[in-house]
């Protein structure tokens, strides 16, 4: 089956920084892929490469079979892009912005106006149609950004952190709009640093960190994989560390994460804790710490990336 978006081994460097370090992606038509990662993980760079705004240093990517480097013009006809860097003109009114894009896409003046008003009505912006965009609220602004990427009815939509900085109400309004588009059959690539957003919208999630894909799966698979809970064991004697690792690993059926002398493992089976206690006792291993903590989605993220969501402030993408 042909993928709507397909990427293999994407690499992008900015000077000393490697923003993408071999990213693979595959998105089926009509689905939503959530690209999840903290600030600076490379999400924006990935979207910019796929939207033809940046050329990768290595690897290939295609949108509906069109190469994003060699057939960039074709890709641009298929993709609508919304992100903080792909913005509308603040000096113009809402309707002027949408007419401008319609005209650039080759629509006759009348058709462009008609499409602009159609979108403004759909996005609940009709009342603000003739106001300069700089007077819009944050939520209105994002809705217009989204409308601007839909003027040409693209079959693919790239949404780069569409709700960052929005209040909860504006956020859920935007989610609803995105769900409606998906219902119409649009393929969506969504980047976000919010797990609940990926959980709410995405059919499949790709977690990236430091330019690498570190996990892939449906939201359910990811939660199961990282466990609803995690078990941490710290042996009293450092010499017992390998015994702890092998016992915990054998019982949990995954290889545990070792940080210093702390052994952690995701827990999906409630029988794990008593089993671990029994086996450690049998082996004569004394532990100073044995904790079972239920993990929120944020901890799932922490488990995968090794640091909490949004902990890195370093910005990514092209220099401002």
């Amino acid at each position: 089956m042909e993928h709507a978006i397909w990427a293999e081994g994407l690499v992008k460097r900015f000077g000393q920084t490697t923003a993408l370090d071999g990213v693979d992606l595959a998105v089926r038509p009509g689905t939503v892929l959530g690209l999840l990662g903290p600030n600076g993980a490379g999400k924006t760079t990935a979207v910019r490469v796929l939207a033809t705004l940046l050329q990768p240093d290595a690897g290939h990517a295609a949108v509906r079979g069109y190469d994003v480097v060699r057939q960039a013009h074709q890709v641009r006809q298929l993709v609508g892009l919304t992100g903080q860097y792909a913005s509308v003109d603040e000096a113009l009114t809402g309707v002027e912005n949408l007419v401008l894009i319609g005209r650039l896409l080759g629509m006759p003046r009348k058709r462009a106006k008609q499409r602009a008003h159609e979108l403004l009505a759909q996005f609940n912006l009709s009342d603000a149609a003739d106001r300069a965009v700089k007077t819009y609220s944050g939520g209105m602004r994002r809705r217009l950004d989204l409308a601007a990427s839909l003027v040409g009815r693209p079959p693919l939509l790239f949404l780069d952190e569409p709700t960052t900085g929005l209040d909860p109400r504006a956020r859920s309004e935007l989610w609803e709009l995105i769900r409606n588009l998906v219902a119409e059959g649009v393929t969506v690539l969504l980047t976000t640093q919010y797990l609940d957003e990926a959980d709410a919208l995405a059919d499949e999630i790709v977690v990236i960190d430091e330019g690498r894909v570190i996990a892939t799966g449906t939201p359910e698979e990811l939660k199961a994989k990282t466990g609803g809970q995690s078990l941490a064991v710290r042996p009293a004697e450092a010499s017992d560390l390998s015994a702890v690792v092998s016992i915990v690993g054998e019982l949990a059926e995954v290889s545990p994460d070792v940080t210093g002398d702390l052994v952690t493992v995701p827990v999906s089976d409630p029988h794990l804790l008593p089993a671990v206690v029994r086996r450690l006792d049998e082996a004569g291993v004394v532990v100073t710490e044995l904790t079972l903590s239920s993990s929120s989605l944020d901890e799932v993220f922490l488990t995968l990336t090794g640091h909490p969501a949004g902990s890195q402030d370093e910005s990514e993408g092209s220099p401002a």
Binding site: H73, L78, D89, E96, L104, R153, G185, V186
Partner: peptide, 27 residues
């Protein structure tokens, strides 16, 4: 309506490019 695959053209012709430039000048 949205998901119909549009006709994809391989490049922008010079006349089309000129029209786009004038649209941007209008802006």
């Amino acid at each position: 309506t949205t998901a119909t695959i549009p006709e994809v053209s391989p490049r922008v012709g010079p006349v089309e490019g000129l029209r786009q430039s004038l649209t941007l000048a209008w802006r």
